[in-house]
């Protein structure tokens, strides 16, 4: 499995951005199993890039190929399969169901294409320190807790690529490391790649490639 970015540039960006960026306007190939770090200051289009790859937006020029297929040509149902089987994500804005409990939020993703049994929800939640929150409504959890819920949710399905968009913005170092370790462990189980976009370099992410957006 390979994810390729072919000279992509958001249609609302100036073409000159190609000269200063290591991603925009360049051709890049990400292979399964690779850890990729994308360092990007605010406003450089980090979230846009993650959304383009996930197929949520398409206001860009150039092509994104998944397994040599242009995702722009995907029909709606192709995207459903892509998100269920191949690409998982932790959104910067988390996107949880506030009225549902923590467990329900995670279960909604797990039942779609279960990589783990339901018991693994409890194990992961314990590991990240939110084991006692599973039956609480998500809206009463702190932002840091919600970030951990979103991380656990992203690990419930099979994937070839895990997209992370500032996943630790509200976590302290210790909790961030725990979460990172869990994600590394889970991606190893799937021989998957992690594409980690953040404001700055993080030492505990063992990336093989780094790009400045």
């Amino acid at each position: 499995m390979q994810l390729s970015l072919k000279e992509i540039l958001p249609s609302y960006f100036d073409v000159a951005r190609k000269n200063t960026s290591e991603v925009w306007g360049k051709t890049l190939h990400f292979n399964k199993g690779e850890y990729i770090k994308i360092v990007a200051p605010s406003g450089s289009g980090k979230t846009s890039l993650i959304h383009f790859i996930y197929g949520m937006r398409n206001e860009y020029n150039g092509h994104i190929l998944y397994d040599n297929l242009d995702i722009r040509k995907f029909i709606i149902e192709d995207f459903a399969r892509y998100r269920k089987d191949q690409v998982s994500i932790v959104f910067q804005d988390l996107r949880l169901f506030p009225e549902q409990t923590v467990r329900e939020n995670i279960e909604l993703k797990r039942q779609l294409n279960p990589f783990h049994g339901p018991e693994r929800i409890q194990e992961m939640a314990d590991e990240l320190g939110i084991g006692n929150k599973l039956e609480s409504k998500t809206q009463i959890c702190s932002y840091g807790e919600q970030q951990r819920i979103a991380i656990i949710r992203s690990l419930m399905q099979p994937f070839d690529f895990l997209l992370l968009d500032e996943p630790f913005s509200h976590l302290d170092n210790e909790n961030s490391q725990k979460a990172m370790n869990l994600m590394l462990e889970e991606s190893k189980k799937r021989n998957a790649s992690i594409i980690f976009a953040d404001l700055e370099r993080i030492d505990y992410f063992p990336y093989q490639k780094i790009y400045h957006l």
Partner: peptide, 11 residues
Amino acid sequence: LLITLGYSPDW
């Protein structure tokens, strides 16, 4: 959000 998470619109 369900569609974003990978639920099929048809389903």
